[in-house]
Simulated scan of single mutants.
Amino acid sequence: MNILETKKTSQEISQLLSVSLPKAVSYQEYRATVSALVANGLSTGTVQNDALANYTLLNDKRMKRLDKTLKFSEDIIEGIAKINKKVTWLVLTESWCGDAAQTMPVMNKLASLNSNIDFKVILRDENLALMNQFLTNGTLSIPKLLMIDDATNTVFSEWGPRPSKATQLVAEYKNTHGTLTPEFKQDLQIWYTKDKGVNTAEDLLAGLLLE
């Protein structure tokens, strides 16, 4: 994977969006694709191995659970209802990504609460030209959610790869230990379970209000 060093202009990014958006699918189509991959022991992407297939299997289970159990506070529900401009939420992801499995159901449920928000999904590795414009600390970290003003086809906010509190936990752990251990990654999944999507929902609403 080539990571481009140069940032493109807003017009060039709009052109990239015009190429990528037609390839995007709905959340429901993405979930169906992931479930089909699981049934065949596969994952998204050109690289296929047992580890990625196992992550995809685990993530499919996580997303099924969250799709059924997610609930939001009245403050979040009222905040989302106030969005009165047509926007598209375009998330770049892959099926093996644990952070995506914990946050994409939140994105979908929030979007379902307001018809002005159209939630779409594309695969990172098939859209690297766009992904390269929204790196996190120089890396291709996912999920990466782009909030797009439909009227202008411009990105007014971006989010990812983790909610703000989880990002802080990761930064603190890296500062102390240098790298993320398997034990920490397990602890992070426990944090997601306890948080129940609250921090992600708060972050996404704050991003919408930037418009």
Rank of each mutant, 00 (worst) to 15 (best):
D203Q: 08
W89C: 02
Q186F: 08
L169D: 03
V34G: 05
P182W: 09
A36H: 15
V198R: 14
Q28R: 09
A39V: 07
W191E: 07
G79N: 03
A24P: 06
D99T: 11
L113T: 09
G138E: 04
V155P: 08
L210M: 14
N108M: 04
K68E: 15
E172Q: 12
Y27L: 06
T93Y: 05
A101T: 10
I76R: 01
N199Q: 14
W89D: 02
G160A: 05
D149W: 07
S115T: 14
N49G: 06
M63L: 02
A206L: 10
R31D: 00
R65G: 06
L70K: 03
D118Q: 14
F119K: 07
E94H: 06
E183P: 01
A206H: 10
S112Q: 12
L58I: 09
L90A: 03
T46R: 09
V121F: 02
D150S: 04
E183D: 12
F134N: 01
P163C: 11
N114V: 08
N132E: 05
S141V: 02
D125N: 13
N199A: 14
P105N: 11
L21A: 06
S112F: 08
A166K: 03
N84S: 14
V106M: 06
N49L: 15
M63S: 04
S95Y: 09
N127R: 04
V121E: 02
A100E: 05
M147A: 10
